[in-house]
Design a protein around this nucleic acid. Structure first.
Lengths: 137, 137
DNA sequence: GTATGTCAACGATAAAACTCCTAGGAGGCA
DNA sequence: TGCCTCCTAGGAGTTTTATCGTTGACATAC
């Protein structure tokens, strides 16, 4: 019979909840890390086992992957950062901004003004997208 | 003594949950509307009273405002669309994209490619932000 | 009048997310 | 060996969200 088990890993994991996103963000920043490391990095005042349990559930949901290392477990994001960020941004885009990327950018820049360098970067990125669009169509 | 009551309205309402965002989006689109109208617009297959209850709770949280109209109630977003979008985008920016607007834009455009016109719009917006920045600093 | 329909309010339940307590295994060390 | 520390796993409790059944108010149709 097929393996067994309580830990199923959906091919495409769900959009993470707020708390889960925080954990993912830490893992993206640190790279593969133990529960302890993540817990410290979070800096929240909830208990260690809370973080542990959350990460175990995220494992079940297919959000995290886990490898054994010596005495403890090492977790990492199961879907690459870019891809997950894209999904989250896309989800928000559709639901909150009626699919208008312009409004999303407006909201983001309004909330937290970017530096001149970053603005330039963004401009370049837009150009690249534009070029690709014209090229392919 | 101060009024009383179960419906307190925090000066600054919380970031809405996913389901709440959907309701807000409908109200932004329709303008002030009744529960019935919102419920239809949502197109979900959950019951009418579910939507009703959700909107009542959102009222308590200060997310919605309500006025009496003849026999029914008319709800609307208590914070203006732009402002709430800004808060949501800002929250996302900080938590998911480490404050990098560039990455957010990248994610959004990657998830749902924008039209050439929209790209141009965004570019103009960036220019405006850039100008404002240089001007004030 | 009674029947029918719509709506808000209340309350109950269900489901999901978050929290923490406890037990038990394994290593380090006096 | 016995004690201490760190780790995981398994419940279980709490809180928050989501869902819906029922009721009573009020209006209109019959």
């Amino acid at each position: 019979m097929p393996p067994r088990s309580s830990s199923r890993k959906p091919p495409v994991p769900p959009i993470p909840t707020a708390a889960e996103v925080d954990i993912l963000a830490v893992l993206w920043r640190l790279g593969p890390a133990t529960v302890r490391e993540v817990h410290e990095a979070l800096g929240k005042d909830s208990g260690y086992t809370t973080t542990l349990k959350q990460m175990q559930l995220m494992l079940d949901k297919g959000l995290l992957a886990r490898t054994e290392r010596f005495r403890s477990h090492v977790y990492e994001s199961r879907v690459p950062k870019d891809q997950m960020q894209q999904r989250i941004a896309g989800d928000l885009l559709r639901r909150v901004f009626e699919g208008s990327a312009k409004e999303l950018v407006m909201g983001a820049l309004g909330a937290q003004p970017a530096s001149a360098e970053e603005l330039a970067d963004i401009r370049h990125m837009i150009d690249a997208f534009d070029k690709k669009k014209r090229g392919s169509k």
